[in-house]
Amino acid sequence: MDSSVFKRLYAYKDLLLVFIWREFLIRYKQTAIGVIWAILQPVSLMLLFTFIFGVVLQTTQKNYPYTLFYFAGVLPWTFFSGATNFAVTSLSGNFNLVTKIYFPREIIPLSGVAINFIDYLIGLAVYFLFLLFYSVPLTWNFLWLIPLLIMMVLYTTSVSLLLAALNVYYRDVKLASTFLLQFLFFATPVIYSIDAVDNRWKMLLFLNPLTFIVENMRRVTIEGRGIVLWQLAAELAGILIFYFVIYRIFIRIERAFADVI
């Protein structure tokens, strides 16, 4: 659609790679267990939810094994919150780069999306081990994960770019985003299932693309069912429009970043 966007990113692909590589190095320098952190975080959240909702509160979630149910929700959520959290301060925190050297500004928030996606894939591998453990049958419907992952990455990228750009102008965004992420956590069916929600609120919750993504990740892996096509088309169209609008605005205002940061 907009080939210039990809062209300019392609010209700076080495810089993007180096940024990703740098974040990875910095994150695990002087840590004792290194990359295991990528697994430990979602797994411990999953265990916590399993304990609270399965053991303490004794709720049932669609008769799925608790661990699978929560893990499937926690993985996309940690990806989204990790990437956006990184993005908010990514430009304002690197002001010494932004005010001195030119490069496509989206590279910094995008590198955050990329490293969190690597973490996500590591988590996904662990999730597949859990599926094996519970002897969930592997079906062709697992391939639906591919469009779901693309949607998840596009949506997260758009929100990341939006927050990073806004925080250049107003530092309120950083303060608001912490609160908004907590809010969004409960608006995403990580610790509950959308089926338990009254029809009136369902539509409202589906305005959050993460709802669609989380629910269908469970559906295609744990249940081995396909995605309802018209739903997929509607959500995908919404996400694509959001993405292109945000990217366009980002590119238009990025040249002013150095002056206002």
């Binding site: 080495d14 180096v18 740098r22 190095l25 320098k29 002087q30 780069l97 001195k100």
Partner: peptide, 22 residues
Amino acid sequence: ELGAGMHPDLTGIENIYMNGTI
């Protein structure tokens, strides 16, 4: 500004790649 893209936790070699690509 010299070293605008340097990171204190990275080694000299790592910073050469970092700063060079910047």
